[in-house]
Simulated assay, not measured.
Amino acid sequence: MSICSRIFSLIALFFLLAGCSHNPSSVQIKELRLPPKVSSGSHIVRPGESLFSIAWLYSRDYKELAATNGIRPPYTIYPGQHVNLTPSSYGSRTSRLASKNVSATVGSGMVKKQPANKHKKIEPSSRAFSWQWPAKGKVVQVYSNSNGLNKGIDIRGKLGEPVSAAAAGEVVYAGSELAGYGKLIIMKHNNSYLSAYAHNKELLVREGDSVKAGQKIAEIGSTGTTEPKLHFEIRHNGKPVDPMRFLPKR
């Protein structure tokens, strides 16, 4: 082989390797649902967050965070506010604000609940209630809290398929601020139970909405993950529990 041929072959090989290194299919997307290893300190509120989403992030009971920080219903918080994460026996410490002069307008970036819809508000019962499946697909990953890898179940689906409320309640978070969850909805069913619906393509409800059991609240998507599916969680007093213990057999 001549010197020119060898040089040409080396140049071709170089461009081939360079193209492979920039191949989008070689990029791995990891789902990050592990809560930060935090036992004390504070969380600085970012725009779009709610007290419920912060409690979810750290696997904490929203009632404990509210009591510790002196936050009363409807649990309105503000960007720049420091939420104390130090565990307490439902203390009454007052949360600190990064800025003392916070405007009361939505345009200021205040984390504020959207007005509820005009329909009559559904008050979650404190009595036991029945759960139903939030999607029709097959369960492809089960609950595994022992190693912290999956705090719920993953249900396979197709893009755009309906996601339904597993029980009646109030939407307390609808957004995409929690890493690894994509477009996420968190619902409050009573003072003890919350549920979450992650990786949605579209969110069809907003914070403050009252939702009936079985009502369509979102569409299955792949936001924050690599394939269309619904990640579904149930929390009891802030702690993850196995949804299969509550959902009916099918």
Rank of each mutant, 00 (worst) to 15 (best):
E233P: 00
A196L: 00
G137A: 04
S95A: 15
P87M: 03
I155M: 08
V111M: 13
G41W: 04
D242P: 08
A196I: 01
R93G: 15
E233K: 00
E161T: 13
K151G: 00
D61A: 06
V140L: 10
I217N: 03
P124N: 03
S5H: 06
L65E: 04
K138Q: 12
L247T: 11
I155V: 12
N69S: 06
S108Y: 03
R60C: 02
R156F: 12
I11H: 05
I220K: 07
S125E: 05
L230P: 03
M110E: 09
H189Y: 08
A66C: 10
V38P: 00
F246G: 09
N84D: 15
W56P: 01
L203P: 05
L10Y: 09
G160P: 06
A116N: 06
K136T: 12
H82Q: 11
G238M: 09
L57H: 04
A196W: 00
S126Y: 03
T86W: 07
L10R: 08
S130E: 15
L65H: 06
N191K: 14
A198I: 02
L184S: 05
F8R: 14
L13V: 14
I122K: 13
V111H: 02
S88M: 02
S2I: 00
Y181F: 15
Q132N: 13
L194F: 12
T105I: 08
V106P: 01
N101R: 04
S9I: 10
R206M: 08
I29K: 13
I29N: 07
C20L: 14
K249L: 14
M187P: 01
T94G: 02
F232Q: 02
S39Q: 04
G182M: 06
G137C: 07
P162M: 12
H82C: 03
G221E: 04
V45C: 04
V111G: 04
V106M: 11
S5G: 00
S195V: 01
H236T: 10
Y75V: 09
